[in-house]
């Protein structure tokens, strides 16, 4: 939270103060007390009207006729009220006083709420994901031909089946993850059932192979701990593909070697073209 007592904050508060130097015409009691001649005087056209008829040679200036009485009190400009007592200023002044007292300018927000104010959600943050990550991952693995809705329906049926089928009998030969709940509690929590099945059967390590490091062209196989969820293989697929294209054009790619090998093999195997398996038997297309 930024400090609300910065000079800019106070300046903002001051800017909010609406300073009215003129009498506001909307205040009802002023409208009610306004006298008729004053309204007439307001309605008379101003200088612009006269300027519009400037080519008119006849002077058309309206002068107060002698039979009409002059306005009772002449216009006296009021001194500007810097803090006119209207509601806008009242709010702003209250905010200013609050800022001066060192309080936050925002409301606490807890008044009138039945429960606590929820935390503000971040910009990139979702309030809640629709599905549990495991459910989402499995559903998308079930998906065929991009039919997500069908996969979701299947997933719902799978979870319902887990709910209603009798409790599993766990084999002592294949223990589940340590700390798992007793099996008769599993059907009541199908999500846990699914997660436990997947996590219990998942290997704890993966094998990474260093090619050629074992000597004799053999790969050196190294065990490596697995991540909680294996990263998608094609994370930088586009970049990798583009880099491969560039290296092909630059001649650095290994596919050139592959091509040469194939060509060499093909040249060596030219003799097979006259082999009886190809030429001799008619209709034996291989």
């Amino acid at each position: 939270m930024s400090c609300k007592l910065t000079p800019w904050g106070a300046a903002g508060v001051v800017r909010n103060l609406s300073v009215r130097t003129r009498r506001t015409p909307t205040i009802p009691f002023q409208i009610a007390t306004r006298s008729e001649p004053q309204q007439l005087a307001h309605k008379t056209p101003f200088i612009i009207t006269r300027r519009g008829f400037s080519d008119d040679t006849t002077t058309n200036i309206t002068t107060a006729s002698p039979d009409q009485p002059p306005p009772e009190n002449a216009y006296v400009p009021k001194p500007p009220e810097h803090f006119a007592p209207n509601f806008l200023n009242a709010d702003a002044i209250a905010a200013l006083e609050k800022a001066a007292a060192g309080k936050s300018l925002d409301d606490d927000g807890t008044e009138g709420l039945l429960f606590d104010m929820p935390d503000r959600v971040g910009k990139q943050e979702k309030l809640q994901n629709r599905y549990h990550p495991v459910v989402e991952q499995v559903t998308k693995l079930l998906m065929k031909n991009g039919k997500l809705a069908q996969a979701q329906r299947n997933m719902a049926m799978i979870l319902n089946y887990l709910r209603t089928s009798p409790a599993p009998k766990v084999s002592p030969l294949r223990p589940l993850l340590p700390g798992s709940p007793p099996p008769d509690q599993l059907p009541l929590n199908p999500l846990l059932y699914l997660t436990l099945a997947i996590d219990s059967v998942a290997p704890l390590i993966r094998i990474r192979s260093l090619s050629g490091a074992a000597g004799g062209g053999r790969a050196l196989e190294l065990p490596q701990p697995m991540a909680a969820r294996a990263p998608p293989h094609r994370r930088h697929f586009a970049t990798k593909f583009a880099q491969e294209l560039i290296s092909v054009v630059e001649g650095k790619s290994t596919v050139w070697e592959k091509r040469n090998n194939i060509h060499k093999l093909g040249t060596a195997a030219r003799a097979n073209l006259t082999h009886h398996a190809v030429v001799g038997k008619k209709g034996n297309k291989r």
């Binding site: 549990h132 719902a156 979870l159």
Partner: peptide, 8 residues
């Protein structure tokens, strides 16, 4: 009942 949401 059919809530398979992730815990918040």
């Amino acid at each position: 009942l059919y809530d398979v949401r992730s815990p918040v």
